[in-house]
């Protein structure tokens, strides 16, 4: 579509860059420079509450302390890893399953897909606020109903074993609709010929899904999985509102820990070191994302 025509070559070479320039300058000023600044700060010791003490260069001290002498950081890293894997796996499986159901040409699927958009409209912070009462033993209906049908009713937010799963659960509530609707859109845009050919060959519905539809869906699913993984890696709002990282540190994520170190203890250097390490992981995600997604987007 982008053939270079005669008309284009006449144009000033400057126009394309002029059109991009404001955006580039803005991105440089508000995205790139802060990231660089943050990286620099990771090598300093600086506590903001002590105005009289100037920032002091400490080399790798912040990193060494995080990686060798800070069990809370390691807990946060492990929690974050669990959160990423659990949310992505659960949401993908559920999302694909429900999308297949919605693709069955049932009635009301139109209304259903519209209603599925609603969780996506809510701020994660609002979702956190809402579930902090839904999951509460005294205010929420969930435990009452679980007990009514004879299931155990855990103390979702008050038990160190359940706090992180609760965050997974709530995140899953909010974001599974994204996976459903994205997969559904993918299913509907599939070419029907291979599916019908498989049908003629007598493939079961599982085989049709596994060997025909799934491979065709894979590219768009990969993008979705990576996007969810990156988002999940940054989880902050839900932790803040649901558990504030507790009980103990059982639901503290890296973002939340960075926030606590940087803005409750005002240890700017160590918080920047956490941010720096997070950015490194993030870059890995981005590299994978680029190699997988560049044809999809």
């Amino acid at each position: 579509m982008e053939r270079v025509t005669g008309a284009r070559t006449i144009e000033s070479r400057r126009v394309p860059w002029l059109m991009v320039l404001p955006a580039l300058l803005l991105v440089l000023a508000i995205n790139i420079i802060p990231l660089v600044y943050s990286t620099v700060l990771a090598f300093f010791q600086w506590n903001l509450t002590q105005a009289q003490v100037a920032p002091r260069f400490v080399g790798l001290d912040n990193f060494i302390r995080l990686l060798t002498r800070d069990p809370q950081f390691l807990t946060a890293a492990v929690n974050t890893a669990i959160l990423v894997v659990a949310t992505v796996v659960i949401q993908t499986v559920l999302g694909v399953a429900v999308a297949l159901l919605l693709d069955q040409k049932l009635r009301f699927t139109g209304v259903a897909t519209t209603l599925l958009l609603v969780p996506l409209a809510l701020a994660p912070a609002v979702v956190g606020l809402l579930f902090s009462s839904l999951l509460s033993g005294s205010l929420g209906p969930i435990n009452y109903w679980l007990e009514a049908i004879g299931l155990p009713a855990p103390s979702w937010l008050g038990d160190a074993h359940w706090a992180l799963p609760s965050i997974v659960l709530v995140d899953t509530w909010q974001w599974t609709p994204f996976m459903i609707l994205l997969t559904l859109a993918g299913l509907r845009s599939l070419s029907q010929e291979p599916v019908e050919a498989a049908l003629v060959d007598g493939a079961s519905s599982w085989q049709r899904f596994r060997y025909v539809k799934l491979p065709m869906l894979l590219p768009v699913l990969t993008v979705a999985v990576l996007l969810r993984a990156i988002d999940s890696f940054k989880t902050f709002d839900l932790v803040f509102l649901l558990t504030f990282g507790g009980p103990g540190t059982s639901s503290t994520t890296l973002s939340f820990y960075g926030y606590k170190v940087g803005l409750q203890a005002f240890d700017i250097g160590r918080a920047s070191a956490i941010a720096f390490l997070m950015v490194q992981v993030f870059i890995v995600f981005v590299v994978i994302f680029y190699s997988r997604a560049k044809d999809q987007l």
Partner: peptide, 19 residues
Amino acid sequence: ILTLRMAPPIAVGLPFFLV
């Protein structure tokens, strides 16, 4: 540029606070 959308907010947030 797109990837900047996805960067961890804490990495931008602290410098913003300071600046």
